[in-house]
Write a protein that binds this DNA or RNA. Structure first.
Length: 640
DNA sequence: CTAGGGTTAG
């Protein structure tokens, strides 16, 4: 009787702690000798728990006096499902040594899968032979596992042959092969198989959606998504991930909204993509809502979710919460550390970023190429030239990470920003990569800081050869000329731009107020409160002028008279956004702005003064870093 | 048994 009651309790258990209680009951009532009950317990345990609870499951397993084949298989499968094929394999070997436990076809299918994932063709082929010898060659599970295994070995033709020769394949082996084609990027083979499958289920459709998306073909993915009549959580997540990965972040957020309207509940995988979209557009309010939702639903913050929270907060300008999430994570891998280091570097907290790097090394996490981009950026943003060099040379020597052009780019930037333009130029010439536009642009940027017209011209020639139509390059060069008061050359640059018809990307800044994003472009009058904003702006300008502000009209490229230049500067998008922010947020609260381009010199000066005059912390994310304006100065120490 | 997720130079 008590056995029946326990079984029904197990049936209805959905939470780990319920299972733990039932386990205690099983022990108390001496049901722990009953393999049938224990198998049920384990199965429910895996159904309601995550990989983190695996050690508990294992302890239950270890205490079962004489587990049968079914229980062994359940445990082996649990490790396989939590990406630990090594442990599956080792359990299988233990099971085989206990000769009293019969190994069935399911056990074999599991260990075959494990071989595939461990890329162990030696054992894999032995198992295949053994399976054929004992007449299990046409078992559905075994064949399906063999398909996956050979595909993972790279022998996808063998996998295909097994599928083609199967007597009664169900959908699963088709879906497995489909997913393997997608994994290796063979979308055409996947499509052929998809078209000639006897039938298709949601798994097949979702695999195809992901397959196209993973090759960057979001359009085809969306077409398939629209044709899928019964969309589930995974269809939505795949599509949202596709938009997030291609940085069509607003579209990703729109689709997430649509998903909620369709009453499909998101899970942590969906959240990761949504958070990455939030980080991209700087939607802190939305990102916070997602974080609250995660906490409210007690969704486990695993490595990937944790990393995406760290990254989202950092990219949205909230480095405090970024650190808080990072410190709260119970383990951190190279992705998490790199995201944190990069976030700190971008906020100008270079020393803290480097402290984190040391801590990461002391915790035996191996850095990768991305980590070093963070480390070198940290050095660059705070002007640590020698340290930067040391890190750069240690990359390959100490950590075995070979530098890519990105790393050379960082070092060019480090040298350039420190005024060592000649060395930066020589490094570009001597590096083992063909210089790209980014390194020339870094050099050009350094020339602006150090007013070096000669090297600027050299950099520009190379830069325009690679990217002749980027307006920013001309603007930068023109600014360098106007600083040097070479007005003829300024006129010349302007003429060049006109001649080859350069399209100027309009500067735009956005600010989130009450979870709504307000976007402004330069000279924008389209905001419903535009009149108020412009009035505020002229009040701000007047107050700043009283405090010694003089508009830097020399940096205006257009052929305007002085008054018009001043006007153009005054209506830069970040100033509009800040004026709106001052009007519509509580006094003393932080104003966060996200800008698509770099802040101009004039705005940088003006914002510093605004932060003092209006007693506001203003955090601006520009194209490549954050500026924290507090009481008249900026965290970048004017070093940008 | 099969499908979806994280860090990247200026």
């Amino acid at each position: 009787m008590i056995g029946k009651k326990v079984m029904s309790l197990l049936q209805n258990a959905t939470k780990l702690n319920q299972i733990i209680q039932i386990h205690a009951l099983i022990i108390k009532t001496s049901l722990d000798g009953n393999n049938f009950v224990l198998a049920k317990l384990l199965r429910r345990l895996f159904a309601c728990s995550s990989a983190n609870d695996l050690p508990y499951a294992r302890s239950v397993f270890d205490e079962i006096p004489s587990p049968d084949t079914f229980i062994w298989n359940t445990m082996i499968r649990a490790y396989l499902n939590s990406q630990n094929p090594q442990e599956s394999m080792s359990l299988f070997c233990q099971m085989r040594l206990l000769e009293c436990i019969p190994i069935d076809s399911y056990s074999l299918s599991l260990v075959i899968q494990a071989c595939g994932r461990l890329k162990d063709p030696g054992n894999g082929q032995k198992l295949h032979t053994q399976v054929l010898k004992i007449g299990l060659g046409s078992d559905l599970f075994v064949e399906t596992a063999l398909i996956e295994m050979y595909a993972k070995f790279g022998d996808i033709e063998i996998a295909r042959k097994i599928l083609d020769e199967m007597a009664h394949p169900d959908l699963v082996p088709y879906n497995v092969l489909l997913a393997e084609y997608v994994r290796i990027g063979e979308i055409n083979l996947a499509h052929d198989l998809f078209d000639r499958m006897p039938e298709r289920d949601l798994v097949s459709w979702n695999t195809m959606i992901h397959g196209h998306a993973s090759l960057g073909d979001v359009g085809t993915a969306k077409k398939l998504f629209d044709r899928t009549c019964e969309r589930d959580l995974i269809s939505w997540s795949s599509m949202i991930a596709a938009y997030a990965k291609t940085r069509q972040s607003n579209e990703a957020l729109r689709l997430f909204h649509e998903m909620q309207l369709a009453n499909v509940l998101p899970d942590k995988v969906t959240m990761v993509s949504v958070l990455s979209a939030c980080g991209d557009v700087g939607a802190l309010g939305m990102g916070k809502m997602i974080h609250e939702c995660i906490e409210r639903n007690r969704i486990e913050i695993d490595l990937k979710l944790g990393t995406s929270l760290v990254d989202m907060y950092a990219k949205c300008g909230d480095i405090d919460n970024s650190l808080r999430v990072f410190n709260g994570m119970n383990n951190r891998d190279v992705f998490a550390w790199s995201a944190m280091i990069m976030g700190l570097a971008n906020h100008g907290f270079g020393e803290l970023a480097l402290d984190h790097f040391s801590k990461m090394i002391s915790e035996d996490i191996k850095p990768n190429d991305v980590t070093f981009i963070g480390v070198l950026s940290a050095c660059s943003h705070i002007g640590l030239v020698d340290k930067g060099w040391t890190y750069f040379t240690s990359m390959s020597k100490v950590y075995g990470v070979s530098p890519k052009i990105e790393h050379y780019g960082c070092v060019v930037d480090i040298l350039g920003r420190a005024g060592r333009l000649q060395e930066a130029k020589e490094l570009i010439r001597s590096m083992p990569f063909a210089p790209d536009a980014i390194v020339w642009r870094a050099l050009l940027g350094a020339c602006r800081i150090y007013k070096n017209v000669e090297i600027a011209e050299e950099a520009t020639v190379n830069l325009l050869e690679l990217e002749p139509h980027v307006d920013g390059h001309y603007v930068l060069l023109s600014n360098i000329y106007s600083q040097a008061k070479e007005w003829d050359k300024v006129v010349n640059v302007r003429r060049m731009m006109k001649n080859i018809n350069i399209q100027k990307v309009p500067g735009s800044s956005s600010i989130e107020v009450d979870n709504a994003v307000h976007e402004f472009v330069a000279g924008d009058q389209s905001h419903p409160e535009s009149e108020k904003i412009l009035r505020m702006l002229s009040e701000i300008t007047d107050r700043l002028k009283d405090n010694g502000y003089a508009p830097l009209t020399a940096s205006v490229l257009q052929d305007f008279d002085e008054k018009e230049k001043e006007n153009a500067l005054a209506h830069h998008s970040e100033k509009l956004a800040i004026a709106f922010g001052l009007l519509s947020t509580a006094p003393g609260s932080t104003i966060r702005i996200v800008k698509n381009l770099r802040v101009c010199d004039d705005c940088h000066i003006a914002i510093k003064l605004i932060s003092r005059t209006y007693k506001r912390r203003i955090i601006v994310r520009d194209r490549n870093r954050f500026h924290h304006f507090v009481n008249g100065s900026c965290s970048c120490k004017d070093y940008w």
